[in-house]
Write a protein that binds this DNA or RNA. Structure first.
Length: 128
RNA sequence: CCAGACGGUCGGAUGGCUGCCUUUCGCGUUUCGGCGCGGGGGGAGGAAAGUCCGGGCUCCACGGAAACACGGUGCCGGGUAACGCCCGGCGGGGGCAACCCUAGGGAAAGUGCCACAGAAAGCAAACCGCCCGGCUAAGUUCCAGCUUGCUGGAACAAAGACGGGUAAGGGUGAAAGGGUGCGGUAAGAGCGCACCGCGCUGCCGGUAACGGUAGCGGCAUGGUAAACCCCACCGGGAGCAAAACCGAAUAGGGACGGCCGGCCGGCAUUGCCCCAGGAUUUUGUUCUUGGGUGAUGGCUGGCAAGCGUGUUUUCGCGCUGCUGUCCGGGUAGGUUGCACGAGGCGUCCGGUAACGGGCGUCCCAGAUGAAUGGCCAUCUAUCGUUGCCGGUUUCGCCGGCAGCGUGGACAGAACCCGGCUUACAGGCCGUCUGGCACC
RNA sequence: GGGCGAUUAGCUCAGUUUGGCAGAGCACCGUGUUCACAUCGCGGGGGUCACUGGUUCAAGUCCAGUAUCGCCCA
């Protein structure tokens, strides 16, 4: 396995499904998209699933690789402790992630995850 | 020491914490496909890029070969698996030089084009001009006559049209039919001569491209082929998203069964029998056409029934076989292709070189939403700034040392290899050229 | 990864085949018409032909290279 606690999204359809949930949180260095699991894929809830997107507008191949690797390192450090395990995430890299301090990068990810958690808890009582 | 030319090479280093991909060994486990744990090895480039050429490999097409068409290449010789690449040489151009640039076959095989300007743009012609000839002839001079200012004659002659000679000069243009000089001439002209250029022939050197030289010709043959074209040589097409194998779920196709089967009509297919016609045959027979009759969950129309649905009724819409086993195509996905190769390094030999050969040694990335990383510390190249010192053609420039700050250029394999082109902070090494100083 | 195409005025496009003056429509400016505006008439400005070299007397056009944008292939 890639990581015992993080599984990567690989299919184009999975990315589109996360984007269609329309839950987006913007920070200076990254954009977080999230989607809670529904009944259809609730049978195994253990790994957090996350995908990375860095478009061509960010830069050439070297820049894109570096942005994606820094974001992946930050996600592997932060997400097992902070993220809701019953959700899929897509992290979209922005150009400023290249020069951002690493602690700032993890801070941005933490704040985006916290916003998602807060919104989720606010919605739950209505749903139940 | 300064300035420059060419070639080669490197393209951050070390350590710590923590991850990813791959491979191998050991142990454990297994539903025999693998999985887990631990140890070891390996993990981006000179351009991995652009996709501009050449090959390997795969599929498609094709009896062999050639030709046509289309595309490409284009001085000569060599290297190579091959090339439009590389090496050496030649011609032309540039630079004081080292050296650099060069798509560089054919324009007397043919066609096209050469705008504007100019007389004329390709075959020789003639606008202005220059010169000659006779003709007309203002005018000037001289002679003769006499009606003394007129007439006649002669010579010279501005100018004009005409006929001829010429291409030196003018002007236009990117380009005007060899150039310069002397002679020559009515004026001119390769008309003659010398040198240069050009062409032809011979000789010498060279494998050749080509170079040198002698004689002859007296200038004929403008440019454009990255315009069509001619000549010589090369090329079948597509590309690893090629191709091969395994293969879910869902829908649909086919075969064989089981259960159940509302009525009427049309079409189609088909079996058997009957009737009629035709063909064939001696006959039997066989074939065929039409009609009748029966069958077929093959299509279709209507009514009825059932189910679903619009909240319910009326009313409307949609569906009508259900089910089991097997087969084939094939999607998602997976595996192979896929990394031992025109391989790297060292050394010796041949060759001016590109390169070739022998020997030894090494195994050196294989991802697929795509691994080769993230964070930290120290050092270092560079750059900025400050101070000090030294050199010097004072502004200034160069070099060294120290402090502070910044902190690496272009750029990421995607089947592989040989080239080309493009991007690139800077460092190091070697060879050579010019200038200055000293011995 | 591989295979193709495009780039001309502020915008949309001709012109490229066969080299010679860079054009059209809309937009912009001035002016006339109108009490005023629109429409309409007349006149005008605006271009490194994406960029860099080469061939040619001459390049938007021909030939190489570069940049940007777009399309197709499982």
């Amino acid at each position: 396995m890639v990581n015992p606690r993080l599984v990567h999204l690989k299919k184009r359809g999975e990315f589109l499904r996360v984007a269609s949930a329309r839950r987006k949180f913007v920070t200076p260095s990254l954009i977080l998209q999230a989607r809670p699991h529904d009944e259809s894929d609730a049978e195994d809830t253990a790994p957090i699933r996350v995908g990375f997107t860095v478009s061509r507008r960010v830069g050439n191949a070297v820049v894109r690789n570096r942005v994606r690797r820094r974001l992946r390192a930050a996600a592997e450090e932060i997400m097992p402790g902070f993220a809701d395990a019953n959700s899929d995430f897509v992290i979209i890299g922005r150009r400023s992630a290249l020069g951002q301090e690493y602690t700032g990068l993890t801070g941005h990810l933490k704040s985006a995850l916290a916003k998602y958690e807060k919104e989720n808890n606010k919605q739950k009582p209505i749903a139940e």
